[in-house]
């Protein structure tokens, strides 16, 4: 009944630079692709409108980034709608971790819940990393959650993530469901303490 979760201690692979602040989840996956009852097939529609407008020059279309595992973004990435379809589409395209200056709150929570670490770095480090990946798309990056570093040949920089989220990746409890259910008695006790549970019809 309780899933055995995999620990995520590091992510390695080539990077993909995506420049711009305030990239919202409507852009990541336009609303028309939310007309579905599974997440299958979302990967091919990630950034569908931006890619169509860029005629093959969008980073997600450029041949040199097709093997990318680590997305490098700027600030407030994933703002707007809470749609988990957004991180699902990024992950199903092939990305396993995101490094950025900052992330929108709900997007970040969704990424944790699906096992895709989002870590932050200073604007300067993000900019260096975006340049590095653009000039050497094949370079292998390693994001290490234990040491909170992003490194490759000749590059090593600090990244951060909230300690609670870091522990969830390292301990393999990023899919919280099983762990939450361990406390079923305490959950019922908490409910019993709340006066509104017995009020009204609901």
């Amino acid at each position: 009944m309780v899933q055995t979760m995999s620990k995520i201690t590091s992510v390695s692979g080539p990077g993909l630079p995506l420049l711009g602040n305030d990239i919202d989840t409507d852009r990541i996956i336009p609303a028309r692709f939310l007309r579905c009852v599974t997440f299958d097939g979302l990967g091919e529609n990630v950034f569908a409108d931006d890619r169509a407008q860029n005629n093959g020059t969008h980073p997600f279309d450029q041949p040199q980034y097709q093997a990318a595992k680590i997305l490098v973004v700027n600030s407030n990435f994933g703002c707007g709608s809470s749609r988990e379809h957004a991180p699902q589409s990024i992950m199903r395209w092939g990305i396993s971790a995101i490094i950025g200056e900052s992330f929108a709150e709900i997007f970040l929570g969704n990424c944790v819940a699906i096992g895709m670490p989002c870590v932050t770095a200073t604007p300067d480090i993000v900019s260096q990393l975006q340049t590095l990946v653009a000039t050497s798309p094949d370079i292998q990056l390693t994001l290490d959650l234990a040491t909170q570093t992003i490194a490759s040949d000749g590059f090593n920089a600090a990244v951060t993530l909230k300690e609670g989220n870091r522990q969830m990746f390292l301990n393999g409890t990023w899919d919280a469901c099983g762990q939450l259910l361990h406390q079923s008695e305490q959950i019922k006790e908490t409910a019993a303490r709340l006066p509104y549970i017995s009020w009204g019809k609901a």
């Binding site: 749609r83 929570g109 819940a113 899919d175 469901c177 409910a191």
Partner: peptide, 14 residues
């Protein structure tokens, strides 16, 4: 919240 968290609330109300 996102969909995985909707699952968590349905399953555990937490």
């Amino acid at each position: 919240i996102g969909t995985s968290q909707v699952r968590d609330v349905l399953a555990s109300q937490t």
